Amino acid sequence: MSERVLVAGAGMAPFLPLGGCDSHAALAGQAICAALADARIDYDLIDQVFTACVHGESGIAEQMLSQIGYSGVPVFSLADGCASASSAFQLARNSVLCGQAECVLVVGVECMPARISNREFFGLKELARDESPTVGQGDSANAFIERRRQPALLFAAQTSWLLTRLGVAENSFDQVLERARTQAGLNPYAVLNRVPDRDGWLPPYLSPPACGAAAVVICTPAFAQRFGARADVTVLASARGSDSTSEQESGCVLDVLGRATTRRVAQQAYQQAGLGAEDIDVAELHDQSVGDFMVNSVALGFCREDDIDRFVQLHGPLKGQKNAVNPSGGLLGRGHAPGASGLAQLVELVWQLRDMAKGRQIAGARTALQHSTALGRAVSITILQRT
């Protein structure tokens, strides 16, 4: 059993607009090869593979591995909306910690057609004609679940709540979007560098959908020493949580979308790492909406609820450094490929910790936080540190 897990390799394929690629294999292969090369190991040293893909058919993992071959090792496939990539990473880490594997490949990919509907993008079926388009009301478990079957309405309600209940300035929303676009312009992997305009079926305060892939290789320190793999980034903590009935019963859309769960899981992660929010140098948080950027910055302890406007105006600083929250452009700038976004966040943070994020580098970054959520129902937080 290992007491520590290292991120030995990290790789990503450029995020593309919907319909920009029709091959899961091509995208995944590019990310996998980059991660293995970065780790300085060959594929035959991998003990297990964990894959994540939301919009894939049966056997998608086989397609994802087709460009590097099949070695007969166990392969695990996950499809759980925006939580997929983070779930794959956490299960892979647990496998290393408990001694089932010394070296694991984790890869996430998403390849969606140009004509996908907004509900399909969220991993939901189209509504039948007799189904109501309103967000579910009441206090039953089914009513709580019903709320999440209307994500567009939830995010609209989130925006309204921030404007009317918390008094967030309207121009702060524009500033978050503009900053995401600016940071995306510094990130060669961002989808906004490849589309002249956003797709029209999502409102501007939601992240643009994308096709993309990302991969990481994790291992034990002993494995890294034995085979010469990179050993410069350590996973200090990785915590996961889901919402509770009481949080749902609060009736606050911010909690339906994960505010309370993020706050609770963040404390677990900080406790695991022996750190606090004040120790984080750089973060990639889940900003599927502009409101997510604001709410999650508060829930992670980066700013106060009554200080959101100032935090936005200062360009998301941590330890006084601007743009330290989502230097990649975040989901709003890099784009959101559900099966890959969580791993893409981790790849960006590994690059930041290695001083490899050209043009958007946070100087002296040593400790990093990654946060992802699936419409609030599942929240994951991982903390990395430069060794």
Rank of each mutant, 00 (worst) to 15 (best):
T373A: 14
M112L: 13
L332F: 11
S2G: 02
H371F: 05
F122C: 12
A92R: 04
V96K: 06
M1S: 14
R198E: 10
V379L: 00
A229W: 05
I280T: 05
R149F: 07
V135E: 12
T373L: 11
T387P: 00
G123L: 08
R148D: 10
S244K: 06
E348N: 07
A35F: 08
C103R: 04
T387H: 14
Q100T: 03
Y189H: 15
R93C: 07
V217L: 04
Q158Y: 09
P151A: 04
A128L: 13
Q158V: 01
F311V: 01
L6C: 08
V216W: 04
V191Y: 13
R230M: 01
R149S: 15
M1T: 12
R198V: 06
E3S: 13
R240K: 07
A231W: 05
P113W: 09
V195L: 13
A101V: 09
A92F: 01
S341H: 11
A83E: 02
K125M: 14
T134R: 13
F155N: 08
V49G: 00
P317K: 06
A52K: 00
E57F: 05
G108A: 12
G339M: 08
I60N: 06
M112S: 09
V216I: 15
C21Y: 08
V216P: 00
R194D: 02
R4G: 10
A85Y: 02
V298I: 07
E120A: 14
S160D: 15
L285H: 01
I362A: 07
